[in-house]
Simulated assay, not measured.
Amino acid sequence: MRVLNLVTTPRSRFYRQQVEALTGHGVEETTLAVPGHHEYGESDNGRTVFDYARFLPTVLRHAAGNYDLVHANYGLTAPHAVLQARLPVVVSLWGSDLAGRYGQVSRLATRFADAVVVMSEAMADDLGRDCHVVPHGVDLDMFRPEPTGAARDRLGWRDDARYVLFPYPQGRAVKNYPRADRVVDAARDRVDGDLVLQSVQGVDHEDMATYFNAADVLLLTSRREGSPNVVKEALACNLPVVSTDVGDVRERVAGVTASRVSDDDDELADGVVEAVGVDGAPDGRAAARTVGRERCTERLLDVYRSVLDAA
């Protein structure tokens, strides 16, 4: 199977992992990225309408080659995919491309796609058409439980404190660090010992497992998400999760000990207090297995096959 991938940036960690996993299953791919400046993890700063316009001839030229389908990864590449008439089209929406400022572009383009992949049932409901729900998978070999003490030793964290992990830089507005700070402050007087809110910046992805294993709870206060991998990765390390009701987090943490989803600050603080004081064996890894990378890769391959069978 030969796939022409369209992306806004090939540096996306999720995208690189997807390509690696599909290549392991025999998929041959070529990646085309929208020209112009783009900082991964930020808004589409620096890009102009002209950049997207001059991307179209490149897509049309490659689509005339020896490919089986076009996969538009992120909604802003979907118009380019559907404007070529030769190959079947799969469009993947990642979250901000549906809920963000350019959501209408994604909605319009997906009407002409052969299949649409979204990260969560909530996104499918929002889009209002038949979709395949295939979240980004988590690497269960990279993210696995280890003793808390060993992880804290590597990070230089204290053994006598409780750590609430905010898994993003403080400055990313959509992740809403000020709310996390308020929630932890509200919980602080109800916890024995020091309660530390620990943000993360400049950490290599493979090192995040150490942070998950060193912390007592993951706190997510995002304003919007699709299917946040930090939640799945934390669960794979048996770290409880307390989160705002965004994306598919409620589905991911259903039934997981000491994990909670709420849009109320007091309830989020209650969740933090419960998580740092919980007794008994954690059980998040069992929930994470349902979104392991291998399983999610197979589901995406099934989407490809269904599109090709219908062509």
Rank of each mutant, 00 (worst) to 15 (best):
P240N: 01
P178D: 07
Y211P: 05
N176E: 00
A99V: 00
P282A: 05
V242W: 00
Q201E: 13
V19W: 04
D51E: 12
S306M: 06
V246M: 10
G36K: 12
Y67W: 11
R107W: 09
D159I: 00
Y40E: 14
E274D: 15
R299L: 10
G100E: 03
R101I: 11
E121H: 15
A281E: 15
D97Q: 09
R154C: 03
E39G: 03
D68T: 07
V191S: 11
H25F: 15
R250F: 04
H132K: 03
M208I: 08
R172P: 00
L98N: 13
A81R: 01
V183F: 02
T58L: 09
N229K: 00
Q201L: 09
L219F: 01
V273Y: 09
R295G: 10
A234V: 11
L4I: 05
R111A: 08
N45P: 01
T148H: 12
E121A: 15
R252D: 03
E274H: 14
L22D: 06
A78H: 06
G280A: 06
P282G: 14
D266G: 04
S43F: 13
L69R: 07
V118L: 03
C296R: 15
K175Q: 02
E206F: 09
R179F: 07
A85Y: 04
R111E: 08
V133T: 09
D248C: 11
D194T: 11
L140M: 03
L83C: 08
Q17F: 06
S243E: 02
D245V: 00
H136K: 09
D245I: 01
T48P: 12
P178E: 03
P57Y: 05
A113T: 06
S106V: 02
R47P: 00
V231G: 08
V203A: 07
G255P: 04
A288P: 12
V7G: 10
D185I: 08
R158Q: 15
F14L: 11
D263E: 03
